[in-house]
Structures are given as C-alpha cells and as structure tokens.
Design a binder for these strands. Sequence first.
DNA 1: CAGCGCTGCGCCCTCTGCTGGAGACCC
DNA 2: AGGGTCTCCAGCAGAGGGCGCAGCGCTG
Length: 648
Amino acid sequence: MAGTEISVPPEQFTKSKEPGLITEKALEEEEEGVCRAREHPSSEELEAESTHGALQAKIPGDELELLLAIPEEGEKHILTLQMVHLTSEDAELQDLAPQHQEEVQGMVQQAGSGLQSLVWLGEGSQQSPHQCVTISIQEEVYLLQEVEVMQFHVLEENVTGASEDSKCAVSLAESSGSRKLEKGQEEERLLAEGGSSEETEGQFLLLEVRPGDEERVEIVLTISPLNIEKPALGQAHVEEANATESQKKTKEGKRTFHCDICTFTSSRISSLNRHLKTHTNEKPYTCHLCLKAFRTVTVLRNHINTHTGTRPYQCGDCDMAFVTSGERARHRRYKHTHEKPFKCSMCKYASVEASKLKRHIRSHTGERPFQCHLCSYAGKDACKVKRHMRTHSGERPYECHICHARFTQSGTMKIHVLQKHGENVPKYQCPHCDTVTARKSDLRVHLLKLHTYEAAEMKCRYCSAVFHERYALIQHQKTHKNEKRFKCEHCSYACKQERHMTVHIRTHTGEKPFACLSCNRRFPQKQLLNVHFKKYHDTTFVPTVYKCPRCGKGFTRLNNMQRHLKKCGSRQEKPTTSEKGRRTRMRKPTNPKETAKEDEAAAEEASLVSGEQYPGGLVPIDFGEAMAGGEDPDEDMTCEMILATMEN
DNA sequence: CAGCGCTGCGCCCTCTGCTGGAGACCC
DNA sequence: AGGGTCTCCAGCAGAGGGCGCAGCGCTG
C-alpha cells in the first residue's frame, strides 16, 4: 500500500477540462519561437489540417517542428504517429539520423501514408542509423490543449510483433500549436541510464525508463510547457525507491501522489488511497444476492441494481433507463443528441466515444494488435479474434429455428432465414438485363462479369460480329440458336449442332471409330455399338416392348407404337412391368425447359428419321434416346430397316 | 467518504462486402 | 458427355453502433 508523493509540475498528468485553460502567456511564449499556437484556426486551415492529418512535421535544417492541428472548441482529435523502422534502404533517414545524433533526440518523420512518426535517436543511433530506437506514438485521444498520456511502443530494428514491443507511456503537454522539440545529449544519456531528462533552451523534456520483464523497458516521456519549472524527476524516483511516503512540494506548493505499483498519480491522497485498493483484492462490500464482492459501496449499489432491475436514470426522450447517469448521458448522445465529439483527423468519421475513434483509427493505420494464437490472423479488436476463433473450433452458435441449420455468424443465419424461409424476399434487379439476384453482392458479380466494358473485342463464335460487353455477345449468339449453321459440304444435310455434323460426315467417309470388344465389329456411332453389345453379348438384356392396347402388337419404340395406334384408333397403353428397367428413358420431363429441349430433339429426330434431308432416304442412326433402344447393330442399315428389325 | 460525471475497456450486435464451393444451365 | 459459365449460398472478415461495467477526477 505504498504510495509515493513526488513533485512534478502541476500541469503534468492533469487534463484540463476546458480548452480555454491554456494560458495566454504560454501561447505567447510559444509564439516566440518554440511553440506557435493559434486560438482558432480558419476554416481553410482546418481543412488543410484535415487533409494532412492532425499534425505535421517539418525539419528545417537541424530543427524539428511538430505542428499540431488545433481543433474547434469541444472537438477531440486523434494524433497518430506511425512506426518507423530504419533500414538500409532508408537513405533519407540515414542521411538524417547522424545529423541529428548530436542535436536531435526526437524527430517527427513524415510517413508516406500521411501519418507521422516520432523517431527517437537513442544511444544506438550513434553507432549506426540502423540501430536507432524508434518510438511510435500509435494513437491517443486528447484535447489538443491538454496534457495527455499517450501509449506507444519502442521498437528496435528487426523486432517484430507488437506484443514484443516495449510499451511506453508518454505525456505530451501543451499540444496546441507547433512545438520545437529541443534535444540534448543529456536526454540521450538519461534515456539510456533510465533517468530523466530535462529540456534544454527552456523546454522541459522528461524521460523515465523503467526496467520491466526480460525484454520490456518502460519509458515515461513527458514533454511539458515551457514555463514549467524543471523538476528533479530522477531524484524523485530515487527517493521513491527509498521512501515511499515521501512528499515533494512544487513551486506552487501543490503535491502529487504517485502509486508505486503503477504510473498512477493524483493530487489527492484520497484518490491515491482509493486507487491503491485496485491493486489489492480488498473488496469489503459483498452483494447479498450473488456474494460477489466490490471495492466501494457505490459499485455494490450499481451491481445490486442490475439484480433488481433498478435503473434510476431514465432517459427523458425514450423509455430507456440506466443504472448510472453516465450511461444515460452516453445513450442520449447515441440516440438523441447525436453529439459526436471525437472526430477523426484523417476522414470525416466522428464518434460518441473515444474508444470508437481509437478503433476507427486502426482502419487507417492497419494496426492489428489482437493476434490469433492458432494462425496468422490478427484483428483490430478482441471481438474479431473471438469471432475468428470459430473458424478453428468449428463452433456454430446460431441455429435456424425453422430448418435447424447452424451458422457461425448471426448475420449469415439472418440472411439464410430471410431468403430460405422468408416471404417477401428482397431481390436485386440488374439495371441492364432481366437478371434478378437474391443478394446485392451477387448482383455486383453479375454486373462485373456480364456488363463490364471489355477493352478486348469478343468475337461471336458463329459470325464475325464483335462485342465489348459479354452480355451483348451472349444475346447476339442466341440469335444463331435456331439456325442450322452446320452444313455438310458433301450433301445438302444441315444441322444445329456440330456433333451431329461430325456423325453425319462419317456416312461419307465410312469412318467407324467404335469397335466391339467381343466380336471386333466396328461402328460409326457409340450408340450403335451399345445396342449391338446388348443385343448380341448381354444375356440380361430385355428389350422394351410397347404393346398396342387394341391389337396387342408389340413395338420396341414408343413413337412407332403411337403411329400404329393412329391406325388402330385406340389409346396408348403403358409399358409392361418388364419394361420398367428402361422406363426412365421415357420419363416425362417436368422442367418446362427440359420439355422444350426434348421436343426439339424429337423434332430433329423426326426430321432425321423421315430422311427428308438425306439423298436416297438413307438415314444415319444417331443421337437421341428415342433411337438408342432400337437400333440394329448393322451400321449399313437404314433407319427404316433397323426399325423393321427391332419391331417384333 | 459518498456521490456525480466522465472515461476506457470489453463485449455483443448489425450491416456490409468479398470469396469460393456447389449445382444448374448452356453449348 | 463434358467443359464453361452463371447463380445461389454459406463462410468469413471489416467496420461501426450500442451498452455494461470498473475506475478515476472532482466536489460537497
């Protein structure tokens, strides 16, 4: 329970609640060359700041200026400084680094993305620019006129992985306006020694290095306003180690109490005492309903309210009520006032909470601090990693209440329920054609594939027409659909499909590519070979018989039986059960498209069977299931001869 | 010291968009 | 019969909204 009171300037670690708290004197001093501050930037300036980020870096000669955008009153901005890894390729840095080794301790490097980085040239930089320690102030939210604590990492060359980085706490004071960061060898020395550094030329710069676990070094870097009295921080920490209850008064007589266990400081001993309880398990207030213990009675009361449902803070604009007034205030900002004081300096995003802005900033920086321990995935917040872990565990926590299908994400299930079981399913109509998709993303794919202008010409496969849009090409090619585009060069035969022509050509060439493995007879068509094999080599083969219901005459082909029926004047009879094995061939298609397709095939077959396009009435036995069941294996027979053979 | 106001962190949720496999369709 | 294309659909991740809760500054 040891708390140490140390003496630090009163502004340090203190957040001013009002931007106006910055003193005119301080502003004047800044104007005098070290820091330049402006009370209210013009709109143009704000726009420029928005464009270039929250702060800009200028390195005029050996001097470094850190330009900070000044927000409008009440706004809070994120300052993001990006990590800089010095490599041998960083010629600019190589040139710069030695130059600043003597004089420059901190510098801000304008990164390519428009983000900024703070490079700390520590002791290592004296040996080689490659060994510079780079300090990246990742992000923090603060009123720009405020003193603020920032988190950043100290990275060494070739050290990868944020978890490996040393964490540092930085306090930046007097952020508004531009600041020239003064440097000195003393700071460098103190950084290395783990002590503190004071400003030179009137600027105070505090460094505090704390040894952590094996690979961690904690550095507390505090940059204070120019008019702040220099503290003896290094001494304070020596005293801290020896006398934990020691106190030091500042020039103004104010005291700061410092927690020995963490970096917490407070100007009130009561706050420190309350804070110290957070380092203990001391929780004297116990909930009588669940036996959970709490540190303060206020926390206990709020907790009990969660049991009882007591929500004393009612929103005046809706029915919502909350346990604490703070929750109500936040709710009102979200739902009613839409006040969003946290504004991103790199885009127009604004949020109710600072943590949301912080999270948003990661979408600019690409930072992914939450690593999956099973794969290389890293998320921008812990929740993403948790969701990602389902891909490893196979967990599917969301179940469709209708079909009980399970899903990894609630959104996926919602889409499923809507589109599989919903009645008013939203559809996405393509503006260029009749295509309707169930999902917007699919419409996008459709537009991309079919309606995107292609620089390369796409040629019609049937004619010389060319197109730059795939959809237009497909529509055009459909106009060729019913053409008998394939014409025999030896006779007047014409057909729609190339494979039909291939078969037909064999009637001219005499080619017989299909040989029977049992008797070595050869056939020009595969179907002829199949029929031959079944009839002469397959003992289990039972030919389909369609009987005329009137006279009982049998037929192997349905259409022949139907033709016979017209003469007999009776109706069609179903095939006998012995024909069941072959019945599937005669199924009536239920799909209208299939029906049309078969009708088309039947029509073509009829055309072929009639021999109207074949000189001498010779018809090649070909294509189509209607023919498959009854052809004679004799490749030289005409269709009529085959039918005559097969029919009874 | 209690209480208020506020902040930060974490969690859960929704919306959105991209991706790739499966199956239907077309040729 | 088989390959190419397209649509459907689930998986998955990015981004952000909203809220619960613990802790801290400040004040009476």
